[in-house]
Design a protein around this nucleic acid. Sequence first.
DNA 1: GCGCAAAAGTTGACCAAGTCAACCATTTAT
DNA 2: ATAAATGGTTGACTTGGTCAACTTTTGCGC
Lengths: 175, 175
Amino acid sequence: MPANRSALVSDLRCFNRFYTGLIGLLDETLTHSAYTLIEARVLFELARRPGHIASSPGKAGFLARVFQIDFGPAASNIAGELQLDPAYITRILRKFSAAGLIEARAGRDASHRRVLSLTMRGHAALAALQDAADRDLTRLTAGLDDEEAAELSDILVRARHLLSGAPASERRERA
Amino acid sequence: MPANRSALVSDLRCFNRFYTGLIGLLDETLTHSAYTLIEARVLFELARRPGHIASSPGKAGFLARVFQIDFGPAASNIAGELQLDPAYITRILRKFSAAGLIEARAGRDASHRRVLSLTMRGHAALAALQDAADRDLTRLTAGLDDEEAAELSDILVRARHLLSGAPASERRERA
DNA sequence: GCGCAAAAGTTGACCAAGTCAACCATTTAT
DNA sequence: ATAAATGGTTGACTTGGTCAACTTTTGCGC
């Protein structure tokens, strides 16, 4: 039986408060951009799935798998990954469409499945967002010397592994 | 000049995504309670400031300091600490009042300064929230052996220090 | 004392984020 | 053929949170 986990829990609470504040600061940059945090995530998710063979079962899925048609994520994929309401997704995607960031074409095999892809503008918008975020992170760690930077890198990776080694019910693969 | 910080930035982004998800999971517990995250924070902040000598200048402040009257935080203190809109605070406090979690009495020295304090019910409510949160954290780290737990504790503290050693503009004391 | 600026708080209007339930179109299964 | 599931859309609604205007109290210069 584990001993005094209360120390760890306390440290976790403390870190939580700290990191929540930090995330808040970092998010401000995004907030000041034209897009919401969620919208940024959707954009990111769209870019992260450049191609994706239709996974639906049956003949259509079979054809999709064999001939590798119907690439790209659909709204439902994004909704699933980000745990968002379909209605919400619809609105976000409409906004993106209106802004010319994405294109939606009907899937060849399933016409009611709208396959999404980023346009040039979409990629550019995402790149701008990521640049801004990276700049923030760089600034945040500017005060560290090389050794500390390396240590922090190690620490972050290690913390992630320790924390995701938790009970299976809590585990969610990310990155 | 610092070398390839891009590795660190990448690790940070990764950790950010991971931890955001984790926080989301942990927050769910609170979300399912009767209170908002923000409300919980306000409650916490109220408890964290059991007494606090009025810091306003002038005769009133002087008397407050000498005779230690007018204890407890006011709405503005909470608003300042948590960076919340006064209007928002008002509504939250009214909700708390209605639920019998807090009492507000006019400050002896400044009658328009409403001095707040948790009632028994308020303390109980906070305790319940914290218990739930602690249970989540305990469950989250249940899979770790003692050695790993100790390591994680160290790591969290160290990470906090490394990250808050950033440029002064980013620094915000917490805990 | 008077007048005025600042602080503390309240109110009402408002907005954006997010949820819910109903609904249509398409597709798969029986 | 028909039922059921999937993918998506719409409209109404709730909620978290902001903004601006206003009141009251206090502090300060005169």
